[in-house]
Amino acid sequence: MSTYVIREKYFGYNDEVFYVSGNRINKVFQDKEQAEVAYKQLEINGARDFALYEVESLFDADEALLKQLDDFVFLRCGEHIYQEGEVSRDTLPESLSDEDTFEFIQLADMHKFQLVQFEHEAKFYALWSVKKQQWVEEHDEFFAGLAYADQPDQLKTNVRTIFADYDYEDIQLKGSLEDLSEQPVLLQALIKNSKALKYNNKSQTLTILQGWEEEGLYAVNPLLKQPLFEIKEISLEEIQTIENELAKQYSYDEDDWGEEEDEDFDAEALVEELIQELAEELDLSDEQRAELFDEMNKES
């Protein structure tokens, strides 16, 4: 039986556009039609959330594509989204139908969700930190999530996260090429042809340069006797467990916050503070302050 997984993209904001900062599992289906209907409606609702000029794919689009998208919207509902060289600061027109909105999403590549189909059980792949012996998490100021994908090669850009294990500095590995790799000749050739790798013969140190992000790390890792990361299969259940834990750990829980505030709240102290301020403002005597305090306590 096939499995259908909807992944939701979470967005950060960089003062210009909303960018994808991570993904989480949204829904899981066994029925194809139900999955497609749910996915389509989620995409349509999501597309109406953002002001168009802050959508990354439109921000990066050339004039030809923007004119094509504007022509599409105008033809379908008689409104413009691109005029005088600028993308509209509004959301998509309400008069644009759901079907046309979904087609616009495809044309503009402004997806907020991903529908992944598996022939049998859902199978994902995630980054595993060899140094920390745990699944790799990705963090920015807007999101905390797991580094995983439905295809191993899709994790290439996520490999840069491994530098966090080394305080975001260059990674230095000590040893001769023979010590570091079962294929020292290939390793030497890779170092020679990669700007992201350096080897000091005198100190026998291989340096993987952080400034080149994933390029050198991804290329050299398979040649190392002791890899810095692995790409391993991870179950859907484990992903959901980790994502739920991360959501609890990093999400703001308004109800819990309110309960904590109520426990520490001292109404009498607040009343007394207000009376003190009022008494000083009106220049009341001690006797008048006491009477005012009694009256306010009665009312409260």
Rank of each mutant, 00 (worst) to 15 (best):
E63W: 00
S203Y: 01
E182A: 12
E86D: 13
S2V: 00
F104A: 11
S176W: 05
S2D: 06
P152E: 12
V20G: 11
Y148G: 02
L173P: 03
L228T: 06
Q34H: 07
A147R: 02
E230L: 03
G175Q: 04
V220W: 01
L155N: 07
S21T: 15
E213H: 11
E213L: 11
I162Y: 01
E36R: 06
E263P: 08
G12Q: 03
Y218Q: 13
K131S: 00
E245K: 14
D167A: 10
Q288A: 10
Q68Y: 07
V116Y: 03
T3D: 04
T207Q: 04
Y10M: 09
R89P: 02
E277V: 15
Y168T: 13
Y4K: 04
D264F: 07
V220H: 05
S57H: 05
I239P: 00
L187V: 11
S251N: 13
A122M: 04
G78K: 11
D62P: 05
A126W: 00
Q68M: 09
N201R: 08
D109S: 15
F102V: 08
N14Y: 00
T205L: 05
I105N: 07
P184K: 01
I242K: 12
A126Y: 00
E259G: 12
E268Q: 12
F293Q: 09
E261T: 15
D15K: 12
Y199P: 07
S285N: 03
Y39I: 04
D49F: 09
Y166F: 10
S21C: 14
T91V: 11
A144G: 07
T207P: 01
T91K: 07
Q151E: 11
A47T: 09
T157L: 09
D264A: 15
Q188V: 14
E263M: 13
Y13I: 11
E259H: 12
I6L: 03
E272C: 11
L65Q: 07
